[in-house]
Design a protein around this nucleic acid. Sequence first.
DNA 1: TTTT
DNA 2: TTTT
Lengths: 149, 149, 149, 149
Amino acid sequence: MAGVNKVILLGNLGADPEVKYLEGEKVVANLRLATTESYKDRSGNRVDQTEWHDLEMWDGQAKIAEQYLRKGSQIYVEGKIKSDTWQDENGQNRKRMRIRVNSFTMLGGKPEGNNPSPAPMNNPQSKPAPAPSNTGNKPLDEGEDDLPF
Amino acid sequence: MAGVNKVILLGNLGADPEVKYLEGEKVVANLRLATTESYKDRSGNRVDQTEWHDLEMWDGQAKIAEQYLRKGSQIYVEGKIKSDTWQDENGQNRKRMRIRVNSFTMLGGKPEGNNPSPAPMNNPQSKPAPAPSNTGNKPLDEGEDDLPF
Amino acid sequence: MAGVNKVILLGNLGADPEVKYLEGEKVVANLRLATTESYKDRSGNRVDQTEWHDLEMWDGQAKIAEQYLRKGSQIYVEGKIKSDTWQDENGQNRKRMRIRVNSFTMLGGKPEGNNPSPAPMNNPQSKPAPAPSNTGNKPLDEGEDDLPF
Amino acid sequence: MAGVNKVILLGNLGADPEVKYLEGEKVVANLRLATTESYKDRSGNRVDQTEWHDLEMWDGQAKIAEQYLRKGSQIYVEGKIKSDTWQDENGQNRKRMRIRVNSFTMLGGKPEGNNPSPAPMNNPQSKPAPAPSNTGNKPLDEGEDDLPF
DNA sequence: TTTT
DNA sequence: TTTT
């Protein structure tokens, strides 16, 4: 019964986060993260292999993502694999895997050129916040809420 | 370009490994691994949440899996996320995620009752082997050289 | 400023946990964990290499350790490296590294023979508890306190 | 006997790597890596807590470190804990922990200002090399074979 | 669709 | 002794 399901990713966002404000104070952000592995094939040519990951962040974390992450941002992520299953319109069973993010760390990378500042907030009542660089890896006494401020 | 794509799992196999011998000495094993997380919901009831993972092992690792792993075996796994994409019969884009295993460790757990001994080998010329408890974590002198070029 | 400091261990305890009850409801448990790597040297002989780790757990986690972990117990651990520095009696700078445990999972293994049941509690007012198999990897809504019950 | 001993670090180098060329083509690099965790204490003040790690790299990896890493470089590291024990001049048992690096990835960060280009090589016969961004995570066909015997 |  |  005891289990471990852990994912560690380091890569760049393929697009700005997509953030949705749901009922009851819930917020969810969806992000696309590319992790690229580079190696030489047998003929000596360098090959880049990119894997795309669907990330899901909630609440405080989602708001931080919305404020600070942009297309191109480089982040380190810890999370877990989470799959949804459903039936599609043809009655076939479908499955979709996602990474549920537990914590992430911004590493710099270069956000998009002509909009270097944080994007306008969708959430008007959100308070201004200092730039965080880390979410989730909190000291134990304060628990693992997702808001570093 | 620098990227990290790492998965760490600890759980039990839902079935015996499925092993295929391909041309050119290639061997592949597919396994289903369950990782179960147990927590109490807001009404205080214990809830088990199980995630199923599709694992893929190759060559020497696949043979070890075939010899030593069974439905119910408990293993620790390191690997990476790997997705295949294709078009289904309706012309829709489909995607399937898998864990490409880099190394695994057998932890005991309980193999199935009435077939406690290793399953018959599909591969007649395979040599008998001592029971390993670890794959992939190689000694320094042999393993992983460090030059990416 | 952004940093990651993460340790993942899987091994067996070299002794029963040492638990101390401090003032103000604080509890700390110290444990010795062995991780053994097995490989063949260049002459083909199997070599076991064991590394011993000093683990530190606090509060709820420490109590779970006291109740359920014994010499020989096999556990999976996530934590971080934490060092103390001080001057010894000769005025020399000394440093000691420890693993501060964030979460652990019991994997079975074999507790000591003649005392198979949980050791008597040092802490009289502690309530009886169901056997947990996992600490720390909690759903986000409940945060990362260490008590699974 | 099966064990896991894994360390994941992300931080900045406190100094240039120290590289030693030993007999028989062996090369070792020692590095100091800082991982900084940032959190708010109970009075709401932001606190930075830095842990310093001693890293050890060998051979090809050591050469890459020598060529490309500098004081201030930001890297992601995977490795394992490795301790040496000895008796000091007072006859006391001493222990020293180190991280034996299995692979690392350069993340940018800003190398020192007035010496932006790679340092001169200590190793005259080394061939010029393209800037790598990743070590150790090898392509499947070459890397990590899977047979521990 | 990212990054170097 | 790093970094933001």
